[in-house]
Amino acid sequence: MSRSFSSIRESVTHESVTREPSGHEPATPTILRAVGLSKQVRSGSRTLTVIDALDLDVAPGDCLAILGRSGAGKSTLLSLLAGLDQPSGGELYLFDTALSKADEDGRARLRAGQVGFVFQNFQLLPTLTALENVMLPLELTEARDKSARAKTWLERVGLGDRLDHLPRQLSGGEQQRVAIARAFVTEPKLVFADEPTGNLDQHTGQSVAELLFSLNRDQGTTLIVVTHDTELARQCARQLTLADGALIPWENL
């Protein structure tokens, strides 16, 4: 299923956009596109609007940083963009597929092998070795040489000698490297990183960030980083700030 859109915006606006495709050919291909996306959460009797009619276009190979204060809803936005959570309104197109039309399984199918994730708290399975952790997403694909591929990726992130270590035998930086290898092992089109350096000290965080960006460049992967770390954000090609449920251009002070 493929759709085309008339107005592809390079930047984000506060104005509402035309929802219906108007028939024009797209100026730039898009890998992810949010149109009027909103998310309300119920908190007791109050309804809280976390994401409010948000629009976003991401081009293939893009490197986008989404900044925001604590509690601004960055992680909620990331979940929505990755199709891990259901929006309350609006539409999200991932690889040109409208996610509102897909159920949980449809969204999962879309992610399989195409989307990688790097989490703030690594999310490695404690009982699996580094190699087994990296192999996990490959298990969902028909790939043949799963072990060899996982090994290659661990070597690329500098952990070739840590294949059989369990997560608790690895330092925080090493664990995040394993997580990065796991995110890239399926050679996805899109990688989401949620505060990838948030749990690491400055030095380690810096080297993990460098690894992430270099892989983004080398693989031509689209990278969306959610962070409150301006240093990290600065290394991306493009930065946006999430405030009051919408994305605004980042004013670098």
Binding site: D105, A108, R109, A112, V115, Q123, L125, P137, L140, T186
Partner: peptide, 13 residues
């Protein structure tokens, strides 16, 4: 944990 991660990675129910 495993189940959730696998779903994030795109496993269907």
């Amino acid at each position: 944990h495993e189940g959730a991660l696998l779903r994030v990675f795109g496993a269907q129910s």
